[in-house]
Simulated scan of single mutants.
Amino acid sequence: MKEKLELIMREEIKHFLEIEQADTSNMRNGYYQRNLDTQYGRIEGLLVPRDRNGEFQTQLFAPYQRHTGWLEEAIIRMYQSGMSTREIGKFIERILGNAYSPATISRITDVVKEGIEKWHTRPLHKRYSVLYLDGLYVKLRRETVEKEAIYVALGVNEEGYREILDFFVGGQESAYVWQEILQQLYNRGVKEVLLGVFDGLPGLEEAFKAVYPKADVQCCVVHKVRNTLSRVRKKDQFEVAENLKLIYRAPNKEMALQMFQQFESKWSSKYPREVQSWANELDVLLTFMDYPSSIRSVIYTTNAIERTIKEIRKRLKPMNSLSSLEAAEKVVYLTIQDFNEKWAGRKLRGFAEAQEALERMFEERYN
């Protein structure tokens, strides 16, 4: 490797002097030695040619670069995968023999900060058929370590392509913060939305409707079922679950309402609060039945975004607690970029078949 790099640089300076400096008196001026860390290991005593005027620069690396770009990329990838700055530093020391402090690793990962700022303000599509809203809690250090929320908004555009639109880190999850996030999405171009899908956070439905008054709301059926089953006796859980399936798996809303009446008659005396809770929320639990059948299975629940949430949590878990708000944002941003790149050419299941119907819904609702 050392010999090959030195040969390339000798050819480079030869071309530089014979072509670019042909009309000058510039000439070679020996070599200087330097070390270079590469993906194959450290090269010591690399002979770098120089010219008398000090104008030659090899294209293999920058003047004061001590390692090729693979190392920064590798560090960012390790950080993205959930390794802490301390773990990355120890790993590099084992491989290359020289130590990288957590502060140095953090500075290297800072290259993504500019990308984060641009990403947070990028223009968005005007129309999104669905907005999924969900969040998670992570341990974040701000003098003391406490759990704080990460808010994530995923959109499916009118053609059926999904992307994470934005995220926000900090504080406790609240409808007020969600409304601010939604308002920012609106200001960045998201003017028309058909459906918002989220769990039953108090006040979130009102916050969503404040920004998108013409949009429908779908509360996550899966969350609702889980909450209900946690409140019934163990011996009844299977039967209650099967009876609830008859409601949300009904072929149409009329049949679903009939199934709920049967559920109500059967269980209201034993579990009055749980049955009444379903009665109170039935409209927003069955909204998905007003939409094309091909997409109902992906809009009656927040599963579409929960996979992303699960991956973010997985990558943050090895870090135990995040050293700063910036550290959290970097990991979340890098994880989200992976998902958005993966989804770029793939429509969400069922949306291709539903596209014409959804376009009609947009026209009827917003024009």
Rank of each mutant, 00 (worst) to 15 (best):
V217Y: 00
F238K: 14
R231S: 09
K191C: 02
A250N: 07
Q179H: 06
S230A: 13
V221E: 06
M259R: 15
Y212F: 09
E264M: 10
K191E: 09
F168N: 08
V177K: 14
A207E: 06
A215N: 01
N187Q: 15
F263C: 09
S265G: 14
V232F: 10
E158K: 12
G203V: 12
M259K: 15
A175W: 10
Q258L: 14
E158S: 13
E146C: 02
D236I: 04
F208D: 01
K270S: 14
K191M: 08
S174E: 06
V177R: 15
Q261F: 10
F167W: 10
A210S: 15
A241N: 10
A210C: 06
D216S: 11
Q218M: 07
V156F: 03
E242Q: 15
G189L: 06
L185A: 00
E180H: 13
A175G: 08
Y161N: 01
E254M: 03
D216G: 03
F260A: 06
E180D: 14
E254P: 00
Q237T: 10
Q179S: 09
L204C: 07
L154K: 06
A210T: 11
A250Y: 07
L185N: 02
F208L: 04
V225A: 11
E146D: 04
E180P: 01
E158N: 05
K214V: 00
P251D: 11
S269G: 04
E205G: 12
L246A: 14
T144E: 12
K209T: 00
L182I: 02
M255C: 07
Q258P: 02
V197Q: 02
V211H: 01
W178N: 07
I164G: 03
A241G: 11
E146L: 05
E158A: 11
E173H: 14
A153F: 05
V156E: 00
G155S: 02
M259H: 15
F198A: 03
M255D: 04
D216M: 04
K147C: 02
E158L: 04
E163N: 02
Q262N: 13
K235G: 00
Y151I: 08
L257E: 12
Y161K: 12
K235F: 05
Y161G: 01
L194S: 00
K235Q: 12
R273Q: 12
G171A: 13
S268A: 15
V232S: 02
M255K: 14
Y176H: 12
I247V: 13
L195V: 01
G171K: 13
T144M: 10
F263W: 12
Y186I: 02
S277V: 03
E274R: 11
G170M: 09
R231V: 08
F168G: 00
Y151A: 06
Q258W: 10
E264N: 10
K209E: 01
H223P: 02
Q261L: 12
V190W: 07
L194E: 03
N187D: 15
L182A: 01
F263E: 10
G171Q: 13
Y248K: 04
G203R: 12
G189K: 03
Y151C: 10
N252Y: 03
M255E: 13
V177P: 00
V240R: 07
Y176I: 14
K270T: 15
L246S: 08
Y151F: 15
G170C: 09
E173V: 13
S230Q: 14
G196L: 07
C219T: 13
Q179A: 09
V222W: 07
K147L: 05
Q262C: 10
Q262V: 15
Q237D: 05
E180Q: 15
E264A: 11
